[in-house]
Design a binder for these strands. Structure first.
Length: 579
DNA sequence: GCCGTTTTCGGCCCGACTGTTTTCAGTCG
């Protein structure tokens, strides 16, 4: 069973080994490109292959389709095995060392016989790298530092929720440096990706040297990795790499666009510029033989190329460029944080939350919400002090009291996060569930069940007419726990038919559904919720991460239950029960 | 290896920084 992630990793691996061999650069790019496409593909490539539709995927041509076919049929790829025989695994792995690219790897491998990381480190320590052509003592030291850095980091990518606060702090710290006109973070952080490789900060300034120096002197800097006239790189004490790029304010729009990416999006945008006889760089566009035309806004740049401004979250080359063509602007009106009227998952001291019902209600009221759904755990999650039917009744009395005390300004709904047991049965009797305003069902246990079993389990749970929402469907925890292996298509079709909403859990450790699954679910007609799963008032602020994920999934507000007025939510809940 | 309202051949994004060199290769994003 080959997953998209595995398939993507394989093609990226092929690209790396061919790069070391010095193959045609465009062929290598084609492999890298297809790896990216598969990694972001909303459905299992296995299904596309089974449907015989590989040739309909842009980026997959005849050769790669043949390779996917062989992989799906046999689980192996002869082409790859032959490549492995030429370039050993240990040599391919050297590409992960910062400052080591294909040329140097090939050189070190062929002249020194280095075939793994340990041998590379030994060669560098013995001073054997400095005598190679185009290399010297400094390069040798950089490579040693690169090996250390590689060994220090666990996965190489940090969660959005860990990177965003750091980026915001840097932006705020530099905002008042003399000469700074504009400053913002760009890159995958601005696009709202669930994990971040490094932080890109862009500054519009007439004094690039001043802001660069201020940046490199920030207290969080552990090491300065590079310092040029307009570009600096540092490593923070938290081991995050941050790149700062300073440009003249006239170029702000072009630069922000360029560094927001993604690479795939930028390549497409540049190709469009080329078709119009323009060369595009981070300063603006240049007509053939003409002068550079700068852009101080992204809107101006996109408009010059015949495109509507594209929200950063969509800039992944997943159809947004076609949708942005002026005249036929089909870009979706994405959901915003402001559109949300409530938060439909949170916990209180009735189970494993930190504060009582009134505490959560007041915090939500302060955020401008009109309603919340309290979803404490159910009894079988003993570790979280899950609710029995009796305690659920007692909690209702407290919720009624809080609603009375808040005097109609706000509505606290009673829900429950009901365990889906290993066979798909629910952890509470129907009478208890029927007494709740809304019920969320969640799978917390036996996440490693086989695909058929766990899919049937979830489908059985959402088949209960008392269930309205399926919480954090995949169960994954970013960088920590793999998602369950659902037949997502079947689950989405089932949820759409039952009009059960799927949650986009906004906790930055979950973001579940993820962007590609949420997009596919919406395409298949599913309702969604965006909720924080807050266990404390402070965690209600995580909503921003859920909104970013929903926007990356092209989600419009009408599809998100918690953008609806309370009456519509309650009508939906009732209709669901009388289906 | 992919792709095509110019193309089934001939293209395929573009620049900063570093270190090693005295004009540029390698790496990165």
């Amino acid at each position: 069973m080959l997953t998209n992630t595995q398939l993507a990793a394989l093609f990226a691996d092929i690209a790396g080994r061919e790069d070391i061999l010095g193959e045609n650069a465009f062929k290598i790019r084609a492999y890298r490109n297809v790896a990216e496409i598969i990694d972001n593909f909303p459905r299992p490539m296995r299904d596309v292959w089974q449907a015989g539709a590989l040739d309909g995927v842009p980026g997959i041509g005849k050769e790669i389709a043949k390779k996917i076919d062989e992989l799906m049929r046999t689980g192996k790829l002869d082409y790859f095995e032959r490549l492995r025989a030429k370039v050993p695994d240990g040599v391919a792995a050297l590409l992960d060392v910062p400052d080591l690219g294909p040329k140097r790897v090939k050189l070190i491998w062929e002249t020194l016989g280095v075939t793994d990381l340990d041998a590379l480190e030994a060669a560098a320590q013995a001073g054997k790298l400095r005598d190679l052509p185009k290399m010297g003592e400094k390069t040798e030291q950089r490579i040693l530092a690169g090996i250390a850095s590689l060994r220090r980091r666990a996965t190489g990518r940090v969660r959005l929720g860990d990177a965003l606060p750091v980026a915001r702090a840097i932006v705020e710290a530099l905002r008042d440096v003399p000469g700074v006109a504009k400053i913002d973070y760009a890159g995958s952080l601005r696009r709202g990706r669930e994990t971040i490789g490094d932080i890109d900060i862009v500054v519009a300034t007439t004094e690039p040297a001043t802001v660069g120096a201020a940046f490199r002197a920030l207290p969080l800097v552990a090491e300065v990795l590079g310092a040029g006239p307009t570009k600096s790189s540092i490593r923070t004490t938290d081991n995050l790499q941050v790149d700062l790029r300073a440009v003249d304010p006239r170029h702000w729009g072009a630069t922000l666009q360029y560094f927001t990416g993604s690479q795939a999006h930028n390549i497409r945008v540049r190709a469009i510029a080329q078709q119009q006889g323009l060369s595009l760089n981070e300063y603006g566009v240049t007509p053939e033989g003409g002068e550079l035309i700068p852009f101080d806004t992204e809107e101006g740049l996109y408009a010059r190329l015949g495109l509507a401004w594209i929200p950063p979250e969509l800039r992944e080359d997943r159809g947004e460029i076609e949708a942005a063509a002026l005249g036929a602007n089909r870009l979706p009106k994405l959901v915003t944080a402001k559109a949300l009227r409530g938060d439909l998952q949170m916990h209180t001291t009735w189970s494993d939350g930190e504060v009582d019902v009134m505490g959560m209600a007041q915090a939500a009221l302060a955020l401008g919400y009109e309603y919340i759904l309290i979803t404490d755990h159910s009894r079988s999650l003993g570790i979280a002090n899950g609710l029995t039917p009796e305690r659920l009744i007692a909690q209702r009395a407290e919720i009624d009291r809080v609603n009375r005390d808040l005097g109609g300004r706000f509505r606290v709904l009673q829900g429950v996060e009901c365990e889906v047991l290993s066979d798909g049965a629910l952890d509470l009797p129907d009478e208890a569930l029927a007494a709740c305003d809304l019920v969320q069902a969640s799978v917390h246990t036996s996440l490693s069940q086989a695909r058929e079993r766990i899919t049937a389990r979830a489908l059985r749970a959402i088949g209960n007419p008392n269930v309205h929402i399926l919480g954090h469907p995949s169960g994954r925890q970013i960088n920590a726990r793999e998602p369950a292996d659902y037949d997502w298509e079947a689950l989405f079709v089932g949820a759409a038919k039952a009009r059960v909403a799927l949650e986009i859990n906004a906790n930055p450790e979950r973001l579940d559904l993820n962007d590609t699954h949420a997009r596919r679910a919406a395409e298949l007609g599913c309702l969604l919720t965006i909720s924080t799963d807050a266990h404390s008032p402070a965690m209600l602020a995580n909503m921003a991460y859920g909104v970013l994920t929903a926007r990356r999934a092209w989600v419009t507000p009408d599809r998100v239950v918690n953008t609806w007025p309370l009456k519509k939510v309650l009508d939906w809940a009732r209709e669901r029960r009388t289906q």
